[in-house]
Design a protein around this nucleic acid. Structure first.
Lengths: 347, 347
DNA sequence: CTGAAAGCGCTTACAG
DNA sequence: CTGAAAGCGCTTACAG
């Protein structure tokens, strides 16, 4: 006998059996299980006792079919770093568990917007998700947002650009964090500070650049265009950016580089290592994200720790509250981030 | 009107409407949708055309309820590295998509076996999963295996220890890969090769040590106990291991270190960097796993690339085939891994 | 505060 | 190769 057949034989107790034992109607059991209220404490106790004795668990498939809800939340994201996404998954899951929602994950890496839209439409049509959480930078994708809005499906965005849609949005205060980071460099005596910018598709890229600018302006340090180079959050951008910045004439070249994420900062470190430039002696380096490896490289990387799990938990919370009928249009939440100082910016 | 209400209004076509349009019974539509056969080509075409015209998608909740299957596969894992798990998720998902299974993820990091068992029992009782895929090292956890077997739930293990259960098992040929890696070091002239072992809870730790031993034996190099140090796959173990190995008297200390995973190898690199020991000049270093950062550090890390996604896809495949009734007891598959040579082992 | 009835959209088991 | 009937285990909408 193959296992698959044995598996079908699992005995399950139904709402009917609980109702019989508790001597009430199935509707009353349903009321108790769903905390609907309008049940006398005595009846409630009877039902709960009966349910416990029979080890009753509501059948989700039946509940879904009858209520026409899936109790599933879909987490949609594309090419985010794995560390980041695993944290997001944890955060969302924590919140989902509390309300018995299932989490469906939908990575769409290396896929065109057109393909994502098709997938999305399938998921929506099959009623496989009551709501969506969009990770960056998908959360800023205009045509995805429009599609979800057209179908009237609730969703929450994890993004730095709240204005891009009226749906709730959760992000990080990274302008402030970047500001503190660059201020730290200035306080250590740096005046020529280079920056390697993030992927312009992400709202965070703009935010972090703004933090950098503000810190310089506050200290009356002119913003030099030749110290601002483009990047897109990839390791290689860090290598290229460092190369460009450090090939400036010696008296003009930066003594510190702020790479807008850790991947690029590690690229800077690699270029420095390969070129015999000593960090932090000749060059201070800092990143953003505090990925696991920021403390694993030598010298350890000064960076910013983002409360990713908290952001994700908050996003899930807003979505679930929306599903329960709360009106949350225009809600935007930003969580604070923390500067983590390590060896790459010196003593 | 809150969004949650609008969401409920999504119009869906049912099997009944398709049946009417195609002028057949709903049972026949069901047959076509499930590829059951026993339908004449002409009828089949009619149904397919009708389904397409109405943009019909079977309602999963109804299907689940009627068939008493959840069409969900649960991926259960604990404290694996995020890079690893994201790859596993991708691989499993790829295979699930093909058969319209949903993927439920269940990370159990930092949780006792007792708690995992409770969670598992809940999932099983709620029929929320037709089958499970166990990631390492959970896949070798005796009491988890027993629990699943008792409930008669099909599962597949991702593990290096096929003998630990009769259920299907998928792994990597890492003994051979470790053997090739150490042989490479020997061919470069190294004779004193240290090894930092992996977490003994993982079957891979034993495998990799065996590969190391075999390579030395084949080249008539004695295995020295003082060159074999314990570890558990954490970065810090690499630091500690390097410290211990490199504090040996100069003529006895290793000229190369094989850390049994990349995290530990990066620990070795960090210790070397902080101690002014030049890699690869004074010390060759290699790891195992080929995590993203193996190529981001300087010097780039020589390591072994594992076909994680393929392993995961294979595991999902075995599970789905089991669910379809195939008999796969005792099946064990090992996929080959590839040595990736970078700067940390020299020219 | 409680319940009887109808129905969610499929599959199963059976019949022909 | 095709179909009519029953039922999966809940919730919804209504009545009292």
């Amino acid at each position: 006998m193959p296992m698959s057949q044995r598996a079908h034989r699992r005995t399950t107790t139904t709402i009917k059996q609980v109702a019989e034992l508790a001597k009430v109607s199935i509707k009353t059991v349903s009321r108790v299980m769903n905390d609907e209220g309008n049940v006398s404490p005595a009846t409630r106790d009877q039902v709960l006792t009966a349910a416990q004795r029979l080890n009753y668990r509501p059948n989700m498939a039946a509940r879904r079919l009858a209520s026409r809800r899936s109790f599933m939340i879909c987490l949609l994201y594309d090419t985010a770093a794995s560390d980041y996404m695993v944290e997001v998954q944890f955060g969302v899951m924590e919140r989902c568990d509390a309300d018995h929602y299932n989490l469906l994950i939908r990575p769409c890496g290396d896929v065109t917007t057109r393909q994502i839209k098709q997938t999305l439409e399938q998921i929506i049509l099959q009623s496989n998700a009551d709501g969506f959480i969009l990770g960056p930078p998908l959360a800023d994708n205009r045509s995805i947002i429009t599609l979800l809005e057209q179908h009237g499906v609730p969703f929450v965005r994890i993004s730095q650009s709240p204005k891009k849609a009226k749906e709730p949005c959760v992000g990080v205060e990274d302008t402030q964090a970047a500001h503190r980071l660059v201020t730290l460099l200035i306080e250590k005596g740096h005046r020529r500070i280079g920056i390697i910018r993030g992927n312009p598709k992400h709202g965070s890229a703009t935010d972090r650049l703004n933090g950098y600018r503000r810190a310089l302006v506050e200290h009356d340090i002119p913003i030099r265009d030749d110290l601002v180079v483009d990047g897109s959050y990839e390791f290689e951008d860090g290598v290229d950016g460092a190369k460009r910045l450090l090939s400036l004439p010696k008296r003009q070249r930066p003594t510190a580089i702020f790479a807008c994420n850790d991947h690029m900062a590690l690229g800077v470190l690699q270029y420095a290592g390969a070129s015999g430039i000593e960090v932090p002696g000749e060059l201070a380096v800092c990143g953003f994200d505090d990925i696991e490896f920021a403390r694993f490289v030598w010298p350890g990387l000064t960076t910013v720790n983002q409360p990713i799990r908290g952001v994700a938990r908050t996003a899930a919370d807003l979505l679930i509250r929306q599903l329960k009928g709360e009106y949350l249009e225009g809600v935007s939440i930003r969580l604070p981030a923390t500067v983590v100082e390590r060896e790459s910016t010196g003593g």
